[in-house]
Amino acid sequence: MSDDRRTKRTRAGGETGLALMQHEAPDFGRWIEAVALNRDREAFARLFDHFAPRLKAYLLRAGATPGAAEDFAQEAMLIVWRKASLFDARRAGASTWIFTIARNLRIDAIRREKLAQREPDPSEMPDDPLRPDQIYGERADGDRIRSALGNLSPEQFRIVELSYFHDKPHSEIARELGVPLGTVKSRLRLALIRLRGLLSDTP
Rank of each mutant, 00 (worst) to 15 (best):
P132L: 01
S171D: 15
S163D: 07
P120E: 10
D143C: 00
R175I: 04
D133Q: 03
V184I: 15
E113R: 12
A94L: 01
S95Y: 11
R91L: 11
Y136F: 06
F165T: 07
W97V: 01
A116I: 07
T96K: 12
S186M: 11
R90V: 06
S95W: 02
S163G: 06
I101H: 01
I145M: 13
G150P: 08
P180R: 02
G182V: 11
G137I: 02
G93F: 03
R103E: 13
S171I: 11
E161V: 05
L177K: 06
A89Y: 10
R103W: 01
T96L: 04
Y164P: 03
K168Q: 15
A174R: 04
L130G: 00
A94K: 06
E172W: 08
E176F: 09
A174M: 02
R131G: 05
F165V: 06
R139N: 00
S95G: 14
R146T: 13
R146W: 02
E172Q: 14
P132F: 00
I145H: 07
V184R: 03
R146M: 12
P122G: 04
D108G: 09
A94I: 02
G150K: 08
F157I: 00
E124R: 11
L152P: 02
P120G: 10
G142F: 09
F165A: 05
Q134S: 14
G178L: 10
G182I: 04
P126V: 06
F157T: 04
R111L: 12
I159W: 05
D167G: 07
L149I: 09
V160L: 05
G93S: 01
A92Q: 13
D127S: 07
I135R: 09
E161M: 11
V179D: 04
L177T: 12
L115M: 14
V184L: 10
M125V: 10
K114D: 13
L105C: 06
L130M: 07
L130W: 00
G150I: 07
N104L: 08
S123L: 15
Q134H: 11
R118M: 14
F157K: 09
R111I: 13
G137Y: 04
Q134I: 00
D143P: 00
A140R: 10
I173C: 02
R131A: 05
M125T: 12
R187G: 01
L152Y: 07
L149G: 00
R175V: 11
I159R: 05
A174I: 07
V184A: 00
R90W: 10
S147M: 08
Q156E: 15
T100W: 09
E155D: 11
F157V: 01
Q156A: 13
G178D: 08
R131N: 00
T183Y: 06
K185R: 15
S186D: 04
R144F: 05
R106N: 10
R175Q: 14
G142E: 14
V184D: 01
D108R: 14
I145T: 08
R139M: 12
Y136S: 03
K168L: 15
P122Q: 11
S153E: 15
